[in-house]
Write a protein that binds this DNA or RNA. Structure first.
Lengths: 212, 212
DNA sequence: ATCATTTTAGGGTGATTACCCTAATTCCCC
DNA sequence: GGGGAATTAGGGTAATCACCCTAAAATGAT
């Protein structure tokens, strides 16, 4: 892996774990195992590094937003959940620490509201597909609210569990708990076998893809 | 108002608006209209100031947790919503900026998980009261999940609207939007007149109590 | 081997910030 | 008026941090 990419990945990890404002450039260089001067060779300022992270984030979101429900709405919904949670987790400091980095990631702040709305659209489309094949019993005019509430639960699940004093480090299962929590919104209106299958899908999601 | 209390209230406001880490003692003194030395006269360190805020927070929570549903479950639920949101809003930096203040408010971190669990209990009890008098059609074994999901929506509503790019300043209506969002979880299972009454209650909540 | 790029080591700067210190002044209460 | 508490003004310290600078060394590609 090229040093520049390693810096970006390491910064992302540290910003997520420690909070953007708490990570010093000295700390970042040490974690990368490089001299601090080398960090400055690759990135002129912190803001430039943040831009690089923002670009990865944007790519991740755009790819995820391009997902569409296909011939297996249930499996597809599980796949969407997996992608959404992986992204929310991988880039959590971007949402959480917006005050700390202020205007330094303009591309992100300019697009975040739009991306969020599109996420509601996407989740709604997937839920609608479940309704259409009769696996979910939910009034069509209430799907938007369900999509929004689902997204909120997914978006804030990790923080919720942190506030509950539960471990959210990698491997601790916080992402799985979040996915299950989200399911409680409507599992009682899912066809029973479908509910079981979604639950099984959550259990089977790869540790690696979720950093659960 | 005594200067000490004024400092605490002003700090709370600034920490909420700007983020804990972004507020300098110079800024705080200026906003209070006092010399910085006077700030240090009243509080030896930032941590001591944070403790004072934490004590107010604890008092607010304990008082709110003491609320119980009475003879008007619907009106009581509205009152609970009002109290919960007022508190979540008034002390939002305490939840949000936990990483920034770290161990400096131990009393809060030691109790926050417990308070949150008790909040779930409380919301559940209020919802159960609605079920008991037939205003809410919800299976008893699913009330806990509804209480938790409701609390999550209330807890993160302001942040959600900020991420959506919607105004959350005082008077912008973000708290009302959060209350309404929460209602979408179960309003379709409320007796219609009850749903209308809850909605009306949200519209009538005092601007002052909600800093909506 | 040569050349360009990357990395190191080590010293540095300027800005920022929490908090200190001191003496004088003002305020408040009896 | 007296005494104690609160407030001011102004100067200061030490620590921290993003980023700079420079020359030498190391690496990678041809």
């Amino acid at each position: 892996m090229k040093t520049r990419d390693r810096i970006v990945a390491t910064a992302l990890g540290l910003f997520n774990e420690q909070g953007y404002g708490a990570v010093t450039t000295a700390m970042l260089a040490a974690q990368c195992g490089i001299a601090e001067g080398n960090l400055w060779y690759h990135f002129k300022t912190r803001a430039v590094l943040l831009d690089a992270i923002g670009e990865r984030f944007a790519s991740s979101i755009e790819a995820r937003l391009a997902m569409r429900p296909g011939s297996d709405p249930l499996g597809d919904y599980a796949a969407l959940l997996e992608a959404v949670m992986a992204e929310f987790r991988a880039f959590r400091f971007i949402y959480r620490d917006q005050r700390a980095y202020g205007d330094d990631a303009e591309m992100v702040s300019n697009n975040a509201p739009r991306w969020l709305e599109m996420t509601f659209d996407q989740v709604e489309a997937y839920l609608a597909a479940l309704v259409d094949i009769g696996l979910l019993d939910w009034p069509r005019e209430r799907l938007r609210d369900l999509a929004i509430n689902s997204t909120i639960i997914l978006r804030y699940g990790l923080e919720h569990y942190r506030e509950l004093g539960e471990p959210i480090a990698e491997g601790a299962g916080a992402v799985r708990r979040t996915l299950r929590r989200q399911l409680t919104l409507f599992e009682h209106r899912l066809e029973p076998a479908a509910a079981n299958r979604l639950q099984a899908a959550i259990e089977e999601m790869g540790e690696e893809s979720l950093a659960a």
